[in-house]
Design a binder for these strands. Structure first.
Lengths: 109, 109
DNA sequence: CAGTAGTAGTATGTCAGACGTAGTAAAGAC
DNA sequence: GTCTTTACTACGTCTGACATACTACTACTG
């Protein structure tokens, strides 16, 4: 078992992305690199998963997007977390604690 | 937030059910009661989710089913975990530990 | 100077798991 | 004699993740 299967992390991709937007705006490629790095290569988010998460979260009002020309002259789509996104993130964190507690009753080490 | 949303636990329903079959054979209704009780009402599995998990796991060779007439004279479908099911369960437990480690990097308390 | 790797995405369609709704049927509770 | 609990089955829908493919520009590499 090299990495993490998608169904396990399902429902937490949004949370992970929002976490990375808490302190500064960011864009797809950078976020995917951050996830890979922070998880020590244990989780590499798929591009399509990432970008569809952005679309969904923008629709839900958790993030806002804007275009910016980066230092290298290339256009990038940046994402900014909204207040609603921050609330959602914190709610998901509480939910995670609850889930963890429940699941661990059924795990044998 | 009363309970746990389905997408969070997704991918762990099979594991939870297999855990409850580790020590003795059981059937749908009993398993659903056990989950509710062990999670202190924090997680109540939907009937359709439970029974479709049985079907899937039987197809995958993780459980075996047989009909039995219970004390009360009613017919019940019992499920028994297989060796493959036990292996799968242990693999999911290891996966859970890994997932937990990864997700917690992105959770703020 | 061509080819490859990295950066930064978009488009389209498929699949699996969870769930909503509904229905069946028999036993026990009030 | 109706309501609740027990014990399922059938069918259709939705969502998130993913496979595949494509665009386009930059940097490096031999």
């Amino acid at each position: 078992m090299a990495g993490i299967s998608s169904d396990v992390i399902r429902g937490y991709n949004d949370t992970i992305i929002l976490f990375l937007l808490m302190d500064q705006d960011s864009y797809g490629y950078e976020i995917s690199k951050s996830i890979k790095q922070m998880s020590k290569d244990k989780y590499v988010i798929k591009e399509t998963t990432l970008y569809s998460a952005f679309t969904r979260m923008e629709k839900n009002g958790y993030v806002r997007s804007y275009s910016k020309i980066a230092e290298n002259g290339k256009r990038r789509t940046y994402y900014q977390i909204t207040n609603l996104g921050r609330e959602y993130y914190l709610e998901k964190c509480r939910e995670w604690e609850l889930t963890k507690e429940v699941v661990e009753h059924f795990i044998r080490n």
